[in-house]
Design a protein around this nucleic acid. Structure first.
Lengths: 203, 203
DNA sequence: TCTTCGAGACGAGACGGATCGTCTCGAAGA
DNA sequence: TCTTCGAGACGATCCGTCTCGTCTCGAAGA
């Protein structure tokens, strides 16, 4: 991935146009042919680039795909700065989870995101890098919204916010990855409502 | 997979010893070399079998691996008939989730199960078959235990048991797949406790 | 300021190796 | 006699490396 450059020399000479063309081609191709049939030669051909230019800068197919995601998230609007905070925690969470679902259901993102998950599952190094660059910051946004609610007394005082995030997003992502059923807005609402209230009856 | 045989002809002549050898070899090899480097020729060599014998009966690498799991689950002790029900719901759930964690952390199962998840993620047909043969029955066991608790008034009356199962196991599996942190017994306890009580404060 | 020159990155593609999935063979067995 | 079996040859594909000749850029020298 980009960050694995050798210390000095490099860096300046790199052709930015080629880099962008490669990442765009990788992202397009994984949608079209699927992750299994995605190959370097195809990416190079689509990008109008020599294979060596890819091998020079990225160590693996997964790293290319990962950088493609980084590129998206760093670009226009891809990275939001905060989650909505209207004061109504349940409504806000439902909105955010519905948005997540919409993204997962979007055919433009479905295959690429599955591919990214596959790489992460099989490569601990990539998983660590993902956690640092994408997963971590996103999780922090979620925790910020929850922390705000916690201060307002809407969440249990001793609540572990990491567990809370897992409880809200884990079911969603797991159902999506395992194809355990359709991801509908109603399902998102159900998760939020049940997670907030708990499985036990409230008197 | 086995169920994709052509209607008649086949079936009788099939060499059961070869079938078992192939599935065992696939399961061993995926542990040793990882999913990415698992290949048909290797499985055939390890099983002492011609490649064609594999291609004759299975449509893909994933299908072989899937059948290997089916073989395990149908064998001794692989399939349990019910979850523990001592009357103490929280303790029972913690025990079950701890057991799940132990299995996921077991190096014998880690790689093969990641591989299976990868196949499911990228192949809807395999996902449907998995849901029918393995996922569905296991989910039913979990729902049975929850239903028992619901009848005892320990769970909300209007609780959707599918959502409840997702809420308990989703976070666990998601953290495991995404390598979002260590799966410890304490984490399992935390999930159970938080899911049961909910994120909101209880007075 | 203008020219020269070396260092890399670049597009293109040849190359050997690995694995794919198909195909063919003779042996074994039902 | 008919199908599966183990074994392995086969062409195709993709791998990752390597070698071309071209280009861009910054430093050195006039």
């Amino acid at each position: 991935m980009t960050t694995q450059r050798k210390p000095s020399s490099h860096t300046t000479r790199r052709n930015e146009a080629s880099r962008r063309a490669i990442l765009a081609a990788a992202f397009e191709l994984v949608q079209e042919v699927g992750y299994a049939k995605l190959n370097i030669e195809g990416i190079a051909a689509r990008a109008g680039v020599g294979k060596q230019t890819i091998y020079r800068w990225w160590p693996s197919k997964g790293a290319v795909l990962f950088d493609a995601f980084l590129m998206l998230s760093e670009q226009p609007d891809g990275g939001e700065t905060a989650l909505p905070d209207t004061g109504d925690l349940e409504a806000d969470l439902k909105a955010v989870l519905r948005a997540t679902i919409e993204e997962l259901n979007d055919p433009r993102y479905d295959e690429p995101m599955r591919a990214l998950n596959t790489e992460i599952t099989h490569d601990p190094a990539l998983a660590a890098f993902y956690a640092e660059r994408l997963g971590g910051p996103m999780r922090e946004l979620k925790k910020q919204r929850l922390r705000s609610a916690q201060r307002a007394g809407q969440l249990a005082e001793d609540l572990d916010l990491d567990v809370a995030v897992d409880l809200l997003w884990g079911p969603l992502l797991n159902r999506w990855l395992q194809r355990g059923g359709a991801l509908t807005p109603g399902y998102a609402d159900s998760i939020v409502k049940t997670a907030l209230n708990g499985l036990r009856p409230r008197r």
